[in-house]
Design a protein around this nucleic acid. Structure first.
Lengths: 215, 215
DNA sequence: TTTGAATGGTACTGTACGGTACGGTATCAG
DNA sequence: CTGATACCGTACCGTACAGTACCATTCAAA
């Protein structure tokens, strides 16, 4: 990938990225000044512009890095079909819990706020954020559900739609409230929300064998 | 309420409010300059400051007005229990459809973006927005569901939680995608999403009489 | 018609920002 | 040791912004 021994430039670049990430997450793109970033990173303004060209490019690089960092714990959840379908409930619960925990952590909230706030000024960035972030998570879950086969889940609307339904149940309104700064949900709240999402989801898509399937 | 014949000050004030609303919704709070608002409203800068004091106060007044305007079509849906419970599906569908249509219209999206973007700088405003906006809608639906009685809906988690589950199903990920500017959902998409939300919701909470209630 | 308040137009102040220029200094390869 | 390159510190430029000051004009009430 890259040289194992970081040059001086690499160190400086990393320090600027780290400081800028913090400042951007605290103040947003418009609210963060380059001078403030330099102040936290140490060093000089010219170095920032030599490495990143302009404030917008620095921002773009940070956002894409943050998306990857945010989705990492979720993508790391390898949704194996081999476990068998009777573990569907447990798998969904685990996946949903990780998803929700990631969503409401402060860094994710700051990232969401930045992308939503600057979406009009950085349309490409907003698209990349969605595709590599929420969209990717939905696709991951959809692939798992699709691989389970039609035996368990009715393929009526396609696994993508079903996956998005589940994820929206998991988000509930906790994500919205957290985004607005109204309330950060407690771990208990999150756990019970996930549990209810799984129950509601399976009540529809995994009827007990022998039960009457409505309509 | 107020004098039926508007004074000159009233008309001027209204014109400024209208122009400022447009500019704020297009450019956000930080991106909108007072000069730009004056340019669109006509008149002079001094008049703006005489009527509203400062930019932040003007913004606050506009946000609260927008919340009321946004929720009006939803609150206007009087959820009557008298219709009987067999119309639960139709009621939910109608309510959910109105809710989703309102959510993805450009003005609502602009409002959400502004509040999320400036939530850190206007924490009180964010709280008011949530309580009088999404929170109020959820309460409205919860009151209806609660009034239906335990016969139809198991009061297990309380109607508030159940209402929020339904609304999150209706939002699905359409609201998120629209907020990010990735995709404005078509009327067909919205309708089918609402239909699926109702079906999924009722499959759990309104089992066909005589059917086996899982667990 | 007169009088006082509200308005329009414009110029202004102070400040903050993104970005650049430049001289002195540290780092590293040859 | 020598040269080239990157870095630091700082000063600077142009611009944009929120908010104020001032005066001529317009409006509405008496």
């Amino acid at each position: 990938m890259q040289s194992p021994v970081p040059t001086r430039g690499d160190t400086r670049r990393a320090a600027i990225l780290e400081a800028a990430t913090e400042v951007f997450m605290e103040l947003g793109y418009a609210g963060a000044s380059v001078d403030r970033i330099v102040q936290r990173a140490g060093g000089s303004k010219g170095t920032v512009y030599r490495h990143f060209g302009c404030k917008a490019d620095l921002f773009a690089e940070i956002i894409t890095a943050l998306v990857a960092r945010m989705t990492a714990p979720i993508e790391h959840q390898r949704l194996g079909v081999a476990d068998g379908a009777q573990d569907l409930a447990a798998t969904l619960a685990r996946f949903g819990q990780t998803y929700l925990d990631v969503l409401v952590q402060p860094q994710s909230l700051a990232l969401y706020r930045m992308v939503i706030a600057e979406g009009a000024n950085f349309p490409d960035l907003a698209r990349v954020f969605y595709e590599r972030g929420p969209g990717q998570v939905a696709t991951q879950l959809a692939d798992y559900l699709g691989a389970l086969g039609g035996g368990e889940l009715p393929a009526a609307p396609g696994p993508e739609v079903v996956a998005r339904e589940f994820l929206s149940l998991v988000r509930s309104d906790l994500h919205q409230k957290a985004l607005l700064g109204v309330e950060i949900p407690s771990p208990d709240q999150r756990a019970s929300t996930v549990a209810r999402a799984v129950a509601l989801f399976l009540a529809r898509y995994q009827p007990v064998p022998g039960a009457c399937v409505g309509k």
